[in-house]
Nucleic acid binder design. Structure first.
Length: 576
RNA sequence: UGGCCCGUAGUUCAAUUGGUAGAACGUCUGACUCUGGAUCAGAAGGUUCCAGGUUCGAGUCCUGGCGGGCCAGCCA
């Protein structure tokens, strides 16, 4: 059982930062001595899918509160519906929570471990005349419930005696009745304005193999009955959940009070919603099953495993979750904030390397044939400790197609015939011309270099406007680049016109694969997960699909591109 | 003519519990730079949903509207 907080414990939360409403409640409870000042939360996922960033918000809230207030946090699988739950999800959820950097109290817990206790409590409610076995088929239960504006009517079985109910309930458990033929219902009030209080079902008969209990049970508890019991059994002090459970709270309270057991406090907050993506587990599963994405860990998915494969760090996700706050207002966060958070993190940590997405051959006409120089390049200007590396330079290089223009628009500072630019860490070069194929496409650019500018500085102090990246043609490594865009074309994919579904808003261009990119040789053998910044192109990470002869990179996020803005505003127009 | 919850810059959140609205992201300027990046500086942006009321004073309290979300699974 959980311990009380140490006497000398001090709240670790930043005193200047205002507390969100959940933390305010927790702090107040500690101050008033509620639960002897104990704080115990839990993260209770159903193992019916992979975790997404919305879960991360809940994870950091629950684990964060435990951390900050000297409490504990459990990881508990809410596995009360065997038809939707699988061991694969149990595994992935643990992996994701661990990856986010959190450790739960003790072993992972399972609602299914409490089935026997819950069953005993159900019998107690029956004995107290607070629950009954109902023989009505599903459709009649539904009709009897009434509507939002019309009260329900009592089940004809509502007034069975406790002993008859007990007998029937035991037979339900023993498997004497077919699936769906009977339910155990709480005896509350069929006219209650809150539909959840109209004699809710506590147990259904369901012959399905459970991922942990196998075929031991043919009756399974419903969420409303199970959840509060689970929290109570674990001594949870603050049961934090999302807004849609708000009107389940009276029922949660009713069960716990009727049982007379430890009573946690349920607190509801608004779930995370993000623009251009979607947080519905059901729809996410659909995308996976229908092959719209490559799997739960497709880098376009808002899942933890997708973000991980995409190159997001746990730190950036945590930082994001802290910035968005916790409130009761149903809001949608601009995905640009998430992107800002990764850039901020990767800017500090990701080593810089050079990689050319769309190679264009550059020949330095006055550079000695066959010569190779190993030039020094800074690994991370934000982190002096990251040191330097050698990059091979030679007569034939690849530069970015987008870095050459035969006719330069105004404010285009890159390679243009007659203009001098800097090859990063290399030399100043002056473009002397280009070669085109029959179709008029530029296939090669020529230039001359100034040997005095080795390393990238000129002794005479002359300046160049542009610096471009490059790789040695002879020494470059082949790479595949996967460039990702938003999964959906619309801010809110669920906002659909008549006859449409969210699938109509799937972005057909959410993945662009570049198969013939060239990257610098220092990347040879880079392990999957390695995060780098391809200078001027964005942050990338090595994908698991990488093989011995081909590196595969996922683009995590682009750099902010101010050229794009200049171009858009007309700076890209042809001019002097 | 159901119940519950929520409404503060474009967005997401703050506002010492009743003292006259601030931050981050985004946007726009400018500076700097061997990444058109990063960084730095600055600017624009508000009828605190509306209307009344209480008060010397209301984003905060009260009343009434309006708008939005959730709820009629033997899902969670």
């Amino acid at each position: 059982m959980p311990n009380a907080k140490p006497d000398n414990f001090e709240i670790s939360a930043d005193p200047k930062r205002s507390l969100d409403f959940v933390r305010t409640i927790v702090k107040t409870d500690i101050a008033s001595g509620k639960n002897d000042g104990r704080v115990h939360t839990r993260f209770p996922p159903e193992p019916n899918g992979y975790l997404h960033i919305g879960h991360a918000k809940s994870i950091f809230l629950n684990f964060g509160i435990a951390e900050e207030f000297g409490g504990k946090c459990n990881l508990r699988f809410d596995d009360t519906n065997p038809v939707k739950e699988e061991e694969e999800y149990v595994e992935s959820i643990q992996e994701d929570v661990r990856w986010l950097g959190l450790t739960w109290e003790g072993a992972p817990l399972f609602a299914s471990d409490y089935f026997e206790q819950m069953y005993a409590w159900a019998e107690k409610l029956i004995e107290d005349g607070k629950a009954y076995v109902c023989d009505l088929p599903l459709e009649e239960v539904r009709q009897g419930r009434g509507t939002l504006t019309k009260p329900g009517i009592n089940s004809p079985h509502r007034d069975r005696s406790p002993s008859e109910n007990l007998d029937l309930f035991r037979k339900m458990r023993a498997g004497e009745f077919p699936d769906g033929s009977r339910t155990l219902r709480a005896k509350i009030d069929m006219t209650h304005a809150n539909m959840n209080m109209r004699d809710p079902v506590m147990y259904r008969i369901l012959r399905a193999t459970h991922h942990r209990t196998g075929d031991a049970w043919c009756i399974y508890p419903m969420y409303d009955w199970a959840h509060g019991n689970e929290d109570s059994i674990e001594g949870i002090t603050h049961s934090i959940c999302t807004l849609e459970f708000e009107d389940h709270r009276p029922l949660y309270d009713w069960f716990l009070d009727s049982l007379g057991v430890f009573h946690p406090q349920q607190i509801e907050f608004a779930r995370l919603d993000l623009t251009y993506t979607m947080m519905s587990k059901r729809k996410l599963l659909e995308l996976v099953v229908d092959g719209k994405v490559s799997g739960w860990d497709d880098p376009r998915m808002p899942t933890i495993s997708g973000l991980r494969r995409r190159g997001y760090s746990p730190e950036s996700i945590r930082n994001f979750c802290e910035r968005i706050g916790v409130a009761k207002f149903n809001s949608t966060i601009d995905i640009q904030l998430l992107e800002h958070c990764v850039r901020e993190d990767l800017n500090k940590r990701a080593p810089r390397v050079m990689g050319v997405m769309r190679p264009l051959k550059l020949v330095i006409e006055n550079y000695p044939e066959g010569q190779v120089e190993e030039l020094d390049a800074i690994n991370n200007p934000e982190d002096p400790e990251a040191g330097t590396r050698k990059v091979p330079f030679s007569k034939v290089l690849y530069i970015e197609q987008a870095d050459f223009r035969e006719a330069a628009p105004r404010k285009f500072f890159r390679m243009v015939p007659g203009r001098e630019v800097r090859l990063r860490y290399g030399y100043f070069v002056t473009c002397t011309g280009c070669t085109k194929d029959e179709s008029g496409t530029v296939v090669e650019v020529q230039c001359s270099y100034d040997p005095e500018t080795k390393g990238g500085d000129s002794p005479d102090g002359r300046k160049v406007k542009g610096t471009i990246h490059w790789v040695s043609a002879a020494r470059a490594l082949d790479a595949e680049l996967r460039l990702y865009g938003h999964l959906f074309t619309q801010e809110n994919p669920s906002d659909t016109a008549e006859g449409q579904t969210y699938l109509d808003h799937l972005n057909p261009d959410s993945l662009e694969v570049i198969r013939d990119a060239k990257v610098e040789p220092s990347l040879a053998g880079a392990a999957p997960g390695t995060q780098v910044q391809f200078e001027r192109n964005g942050y990338f990470c090595v994908d698991v699909d990488t093989t011995a002869d081909k590196l595969v990179f996922n683009r995590t996020v682009t750099l902010k591109d101010s050229w794009k803005k200049i171009e858009k505003k007309g700076g890209g127009e042809k001019g002097g």
